[in-house]
Design a protein around this nucleic acid. Structure first.
Length: 347
DNA sequence: CGGATTTGACCGGG
DNA sequence: CCCGGTCAAATCCG
């Protein structure tokens, strides 16, 4: 337990909460006669994905996490090459030598929805200061991809990076891929990151500045779970109202109205993806902020390597993936019980 | 002037 | 050789 940082806890809890929320929606849909099978399957997919991500976050093993983007790409125009679509026939032999991966940096994704149409700048402030170091046109993508690294890479040897890619289908969506965790110490007066990355507490505290962030015992996680779930639900509704999108419960209405529905489904999918719980602070009671961030955090971990997931996802993904993942996890834990994250010098 | 961004070159893996 | 990722010189900006 001790080697699981607060950041990981919150992120895992994030996934679990999301899964629970979606499960509730699915329950509602199942009892509703108007619910389409497609919708139900999508909800189920999301639930499985949440489990998958949570398990993956627990020990950084590869996974067949089903990305919402994949669904989105399938529903919409087939112009964006998503990594999950590969020919199943090409299942080449792969080695599971986990030993000599050099770039086993943890990777997770996030979707940020901009509210102002021009708002390319709104795609940003996640609490960390980034420095752009490159931009590339990506094959098959309309918008270029921007590369950022932590500002304190040289001064504090912080190797966190992120990539920002504007979505082809919905230009108000920015897909952000984070690689590596911040090992830097941000300025103390700065606003704590609204992302689950609440890491400053886990640094070797040469000087414990007033750490009101206590390490919550495992039970606290559950407490957080519940309390935040409530918050999240409210927030959920607020956003639904403010965006004047009837989503989730209204999907069928939108889609079955004779509309081609690909777009509305796309929108709903994006909303679904973005309506994940806006971050759960591990410091619950009396804590100053439940950062209800202006952007949504739908983080799900990614496979540091592409090798395994190829063959895993070649199988029909969802059903058998947990089993496979468990196997991987066991192996992984046996081989490498230490989490690379908790060592600040790791890179 | 100093730090951040831009942008083409460079590099390495597939 | 193509493509994605990074470097670094030039440029921008406060």
């Amino acid at each position: 337990m001790e080697n699981v940082s607060n950041w990981e806890k919150s992120t895992i809890a994030n996934e679990l909460i999301q899964g629970m929320e979606v499960a509730r929606q699915l329950k509602f849909h199942l009892s509703s006669s108007t619910s389409s099978l497609e919708t139900q399957q999508r909800l189920l997919q999301r639930i499985l994905s949440s489990y998958d991500n949570a398990l993956l976050l627990l020990n950084w093993s590869e996974s067949s996490a089903v990305q919402p983007q994949a669904v989105q790409a399938m529903v919409s125009v087939p112009q964006s090459p998503i990594s999950t679509d590969r020919s199943p026939g090409g299942s080449k032999d792969h080695h599971q030598d986990v030993s000599k991966k050099r770039k086993a940096l943890p990777t997770w994704k996030d979707q940020v929805r901009t509210y102002s149409e021009n708002g390319a700048e709104s795609s940003a402030d996640d609490g960390y200061s980034w420095r752009k170091y490159g931009q590339k046109d990506i094959l098959g993508a309309i918008y270029p991809r921007s590369y950022y690294r932590c500002t304190y890479r040289n001064t504090q040897t912080c190797y966190a990076t992120k990539q920002v890619q504007r979505s082809d289908n919905d230009p108000t969506i920015f897909e952000i891929t984070y690689k590596g965790k911040h090992t830097c110490l941000q300025a103390s007066n700065s606003v704590p990151p609204a992302t689950p990355e609440n890491q400053e507490l886990k640094h070797d505290d040469n000087h414990h500045h007033h750490h009101q962030q206590h390490q919550p015992p495992p039970n606290d996680v559950l407490v957080n779970f519940k309390s935040n779930l409530r918050v999240e639900t409210e927030d959920f509704k607020n956003k639904e109202a403010s965006n004047s999108f009837s989503f989730a419960y209204g999907i069928e209405n939108l889609t079955s109205d004779g509309q081609p529905s690909s777009f509305s489904q796309l929108v709903n999918e994006n909303l679904m993806a973005n309506f994940s719980p806006t971050f759960i602070s591990p410091a619950t009671s009396g804590s100053s902020y439940f950062s209800v961030s202006p952007y949504q955090m739908n983080s799900f971990a990614q496979f540091p390597e592409c090798d395994h997931n190829e063959i895993i996802s070649a199988n029909t993904s969802t059903t058998n993936s947990p089993i496979l993942d468990l196997d991987f996890q066991i192996d992984h834990v046996d081989l490498d019980p230490t989490f690379p994250f908790d060592t600040p010098g790791f890179f």
